[in-house]
Computed example of a mutant assay.
Amino acid sequence: MVESVRNTHRPALRIALVRSRHSTKSSTTAWTLAACRANCPPLVRAFSSPSSSHRPCCRPCRWSSRHRFHTRAASRRREVQSRPQPKPKFLGVDEFAAKRGQVYNTVFVDLEERRILDVVETREKKPVREHLKQYEKSVQAVCIDLNEAFRQAVRQALPEAEIVADKFHVIRLANYALNAVRKRVRRQIKGDRTHPIFRSRSVLLRNFEDLSSSQRKRLSQLLALSPELRAAYAAKERLRRWYNTSTTENSSHRLAQLISWLLASGVPELKHLATTFLRWQRELANYHRYRISNSITEGLNNKIKVIKRQAYGFRSFENFRRKILLAA
């Protein structure tokens, strides 16, 4: 019996199904596959006589779904490959955890266009350096965190570009030093949990201008407990003031004064902070020349994490990379 079935989703497509009462299950599968090859919608039904001895094929068309999936994947791959060669002026380089504690990838971001240029499967110096070479003619400055491998990679691949230390990571180092002093002072004080030093982290790390009157009163009580704690808090605020008020002309000079003050403070945590600033002194001062940071990069890193969670992870790094480039 011949039945001409009109596809409701595509009126132009007609599927001719030839069936007999004694047809086998394999023939039904063959008819369904033929309909799939005609690029039909997901639901293709092979109608059979109620008296037929086998079950009719009435399941979603799997072949067609796979076909559309691979077609979309191929289209996305061509879209990524056909993108013009990027020429970023300011480049952001940062790492993110593909598998925390085990696997880290490196992302490259155009800070002016606010988009991801590419992703590398590792954070080691050699692969990062090889990827950076393609931006040699256009990049003027590269913003990185205080990662020595990234600094060496940028110096070798982009000798004409300047390196800018990311502001957020620098201030975070000062916060870490302040918190370390707070913990040490707390261990030295013998008292119950009602002592002001307990639960004081948020007050000490918050920006001074953001404190309420009651919080400022408590801050005064905390700083009176220890000269070292007072020096650590002053170091954090002086670093913030240096970022907010310095200019291109006086940035290096004021930074050198800050480093000298840290070394003379006598606080071990501040001396360690000053040693780090000495190693990155030029990169720190470059902030006031280019005024760039990795805040955009960190925001895109959060978007990458959302992509990874939505897919419950990726087995293939190449598929992960393509998804990132298309979504961001």
Rank of each mutant, 00 (worst) to 15 (best):
Arg238Gln: 14
Ala231Glu: 08
Leu222Pro: 10
Arg193Met: 09
Glu237Thr: 03
Glu249Asn: 05
Leu204Lys: 09
Arg238Lys: 14
Arg184Tyr: 11
Gln257Glu: 12
Leu262Ser: 10
Leu225Val: 01
Gln257Lys: 10
Arg216Asp: 00
Arg184Val: 03
Arg240Ser: 08
Ala180Glu: 04
Asp210Arg: 12
Val203Leu: 11
Trp242Arg: 04
Gln257Ser: 13
Gly191Met: 02
Asn250Tyr: 02
Leu219Asp: 01
Asn179Leu: 14
Ser246Phe: 01
Arg254Leu: 04
Arg241Gly: 15
Leu211Asn: 06
Arg218Tyr: 05
Ser213Leu: 14
Lys183Leu: 15
Thr248His: 13
Val185Lys: 04
Trp261Phe: 01
Lys236His: 02
Arg238Asn: 12
Ala235His: 07
Arg186Ser: 15
Ser251Thr: 09
Leu262Met: 13
Lys183Trp: 03
Val181Trp: 02
Leu239Ile: 11
Tyr243His: 03
Arg184His: 13
Leu205Lys: 01
Gln188Asn: 10
Glu249Val: 04
Thr245Glu: 14
Arg187Phe: 04
Gln257His: 05
Arg184Gly: 10
Leu204Asn: 09
Ala234Lys: 12
Ile259Tyr: 00
Glu228Asn: 15
Phe208Trp: 12
Trp242Ser: 02
Lys190Phe: 11
Leu258Pro: 01
Ala264Gln: 15
Ile197Leu: 13
Arg193Glu: 12
Glu237Leu: 08
Ile197Asn: 06
Asn207Phe: 06
Lys217Arg: 12
Ser252Pro: 02
Asp210Glu: 14
Leu229Lys: 00
Ile197Val: 15
Arg182His: 10
Arg230Trp: 11
Thr247Tyr: 00
Arg186Thr: 15
Leu204Gln: 07
Ser260Asn: 12
Lys190Pro: 03
Phe208Lys: 11
Lys217Phe: 06
Asn244Ser: 13
Ala235Thr: 04
Arg218Gln: 03
Arg241Trp: 13
Gln215Pro: 04
Arg187Tyr: 08
Leu225Ile: 07
Gln257Val: 10
His195Thr: 09
Arg238Ser: 12
Gly191Pro: 06
Arg182Glu: 03
Glu237Tyr: 07
Ile259Met: 02
Arg238Leu: 14
Gly191Val: 05
Ser252Trp: 03
Ser226Tyr: 07
Ala256Cys: 03
